[in-house]
Design a protein around this nucleic acid. Sequence first.
RNA 1: GCGGGCGUGGCGAAAUAGGAAUACGCGGCAGGUUUAGGUCCUGUUGGUGGAAACACCGUGGGGGUUCGAGUCCCCCCGCCCGCACCA
Length: 838
Amino acid sequence: MTVAESAEAAQRYDPRTIQEKWLDRWVKLDPFRASDDPADARERAYLVDMFPYPSGDLHMGHAEAYAIGDAIARFWFQRGLNVLHPIGWDAFGLPAENAAIRNNAHPADWTYANIETQAESFRRYAVSFDWSRRLATCDPGYYHWNQWLFLRFYERGLAYRKGGYVNWCPKDQTVLANEQVINGRCERCGTEVVRRMLTQWYFKITSYADQLLADAAELEGRWPERVLLMQRNWIGRSEGAEVHFVVEGRDEPVTVFTTRPDTLYGATFFVVAADSPLAEQLCAPDRLAELRDYVTEVRKLTDIERQDTARQKTGVFLGTYAINPVNDERIPVWAADYVLPDYGTGAIMAVPAHDQRDLDFARTFGLPVRVVVETDQPDPAETGIATPGDGKLINSGPLNGLDKTAAIAKIIQILEEKGLGRAAVNYRLRDWLVSRQRFWGTPIPIIHCPSCGEVPVPEEELPVVLPDLRGHDLAPKGVSPLAAAADWVNVPCPKCGEPAKRDTDTMDTFVDSSWYFLRYCSPGFTGGPFNPDDVRRWAPVDLYVGGVEHAILHLLYSRFFIKVLHDIGMIDFREPFTRLLNQGQVINGGKAMSKSLGNGVDLGQQLARHGVDAIRLTMIFASPPEDDIDWADVNPDAMVKFLGRVWRLAADVAAAAPAPGTAAGGDIRPNEGHGDTELRRVTHRAIDEVTRLVEAYRLNVAVARLMELVSAARKTIDAGPGASDPAVREAVEVLAVLLSLFAPYTAEECWELLGHEPSVAKAGWPAVDPALLVRESVTCVVQVNGKVRDRLEVQPEITEDELRERALAAPGVIRALDGQPIRKVIVRAPKLVNVVAG
RNA sequence: GCGGGCGUGGCGAAAUAGGAAUACGCGGCAGGUUUAGGUCCUGUUGGUGGAAACACCGUGGGGGUUCGAGUCCCCCCGCCCGCACCA
């Protein structure tokens, strides 16, 4: 490089050189360590970005999510808070196993290699993490505590094993939780899920259904409304009653749940889920063969077919009768697949007149329909349209004449008095199936002993470390690959010492992610999952940033875990995430990026082409954080251009008025009222507005304000007092600090050009001079009949009378009035006058 | 079907508490700098009419409340998301 060339390079904004320089310095400086010092008086703040799954390198979606979280974390740092902003990896899971099968390697090799790649990319992406706290859930030092927590759940009856129908993914050869079945398909691979009868481990999340629902109210306004709504729907609380029906030939009554006990007199038949054990129990012996044939047919249906509501109703009569407890009527018992075995009690009373599904069934099989709620709608038996429930009860004995609410109360009272039923609440939520027949997960710390049964692994023997199994076949076979590790499986029973076997299933990875944000508080702690003192200091998480795809799964499970830990007495709060911010997705050409569409955008290439700062700024500026960004609609070069303008401002200031020595600590130099007042007003308004905008997560608008500040500073240099004006230095120093939230490399470089060290990250948020926010004059809009006809420059403190007078004299007003009489004048000093005429 | 959200320039988007619609950026147009292109800088850019001043229209459509509505209320249309035989 010649001297002339290097001189020119020095005057050009060069993102690449800047990046390399600061990346190096930050590693040494490590500016974002959270302080655990109890004597640190700064207010603490805890921000967590949902941790990534280490499948390859970071992608465009990560770039958006972490740019948003980082802007807010850096804002908190600049505001002087003691910020905890950690990172880790959700490192167990199927893709690692599948990659290991493909490459005949160990899942750990693939996982840890990807973690290193992502960690390096995070550094380059300049995210303000406290790197001393990084964790990976596949470390034995982490999953040790999954096992420990599992045993705490087990002790309290919150972890249990039961047989029953489960969702089974034939491709992944493992069971799935209900939450992982999306439209009848596997959440991971999209394969249609089938039902299988298996014995599996569950967490009793249903015990917390009411609390999960009740506490959601506290999150109102702090979590996105749609997430709360999805959770409420998922929990699916309904109020009603349980009613006991005696079935002829059976001693024990059968209980049904109904939300409409008031229509009990309209029950004309009884339906039990065909594939529940109850169906066989209620079936007359001579009908058993028919029932079994029917169940075989039902089994052939996939969940997707079964959920098709347009499907013709099917079922079989079981040859028995149930007795309606309020009128002793004999009603036939049927088995059908429209009644679900695992909702309510798996049996219903059918009221065809007022329930569409029951009516469809009744019409298919010629069963009677009896109207018990009087409405102005035509007869359901004729129209095939069930009439809804609001009206006066008829044909219902003591309920006649009552409306719905009164009838429900009355019938519940009658049922309870006679011991025939009671008021009841039912939830759609089912227990969380946590065992998986896969290798790469946390081993379940239970030993099965032929004589002692389930025996917890003693605490001092934790962690139960995964066997290596390197070179073994990890391919899914429907039983856990761990079963093949004979040395590992066969152990003496901890209780009796006789030969026993380890449980070979592993835990759902959502167990790992249900509490990782507590582990960050003390990642090396060996006395428990977390150090309670540290958790008390930092948790709950003040702001949680991540995608809406976890609205139910992860967020519901985490809330459940926190409630259990609270009840165990390990923590003193009941909700994990005080605020939740769901960022949008990065799409391309209106569609999600995907290999099959060939519309993927590679983050590495984007960063190489435009630089980290420009990509971060593109992500922030494109739209509000919650909205999707269509990469086809954005232009990172525009951000490069903007960053170049900022850099040149700093270069101009440095050249025009070299800083008098270096200001260590890096405070913005007090301006003491010098320089161009107009620019100073713009600067202080920018500080004020950006502060409020970032606090409200309105980051795209905050960037727009920075752009305005850049334009104002440029004008002052080129067409005003020039680059040596103190107001210009002040503007550019402020700009560097504000910009550091979004474009840290460029901000650092500017800060250094302005004569500061060691890092803009240590600068502190600039203070607003309130005197500069007061406007000298205000533009008053003068309307005639609501239309703007003139504008006046007025003093902010102008009186209503004076303003009215001036407005009526304004030329635009006189012209618009054209002699019409004035009926009314509305004055909103100092901004608006509306003259009503005619 | 049920529940929720959203419709603003050619495009991404702004608009404290009902008070200047379209901030900021992209794209377009014009000019300056430049040998040229690019870079950079400046101006301009909702529609219609007009030389201009200016007028009229304009936030999916229709109605309403109000001195005043992108914002509040009612009806409709369109798009997106969630749930979906949940008794």
